[in-house]
């Protein structure tokens, strides 16, 4: 099971902030379980992915308690 976190506009698009997904061994299998509109958005320009609070690019294995965060373009200050 992996915990998925959404931030910023992705959260508004999906209508949820945090959700558990079962049977996801890697990032690709998680993506396949996402709602198609959300899957498209998380693959959009400028969206970064963090697994267990570390940015990953491309393939990433997920453990039973992995936390996956989708991070759209950021703006602080």
């Amino acid at each position: 099971m992996a915990k998925v976190l959404l931030f910023g506009p992705l959260r508004d698009l999906a209508g949820w902030r945090e959700r558990d997904f079962d049977g996801v061994a890697d990032l690709a299998s998680l993506m396949a379980q996402l709602d198609p509109e959300l899957a498209l958005a998380v693959n959009g320009p400028g969206v970064q992915v963090a697994v267990d609070k570390a940015i990953v690019r491309g393939h990433a294995l997920l453990g039973p308690r992995s936390e996956v965060a989708f991070l759209p373009p950021m703006s602080g200050g």
Partner: peptide
């Protein structure tokens, strides 16, 4: 500040 504005993990 330049890095906080466009790179830091915040959503506004």
């Amino acid at each position: 500040m330049d890095h906080l504005k466009s790179q830091a993990p915040f959503w506004k």
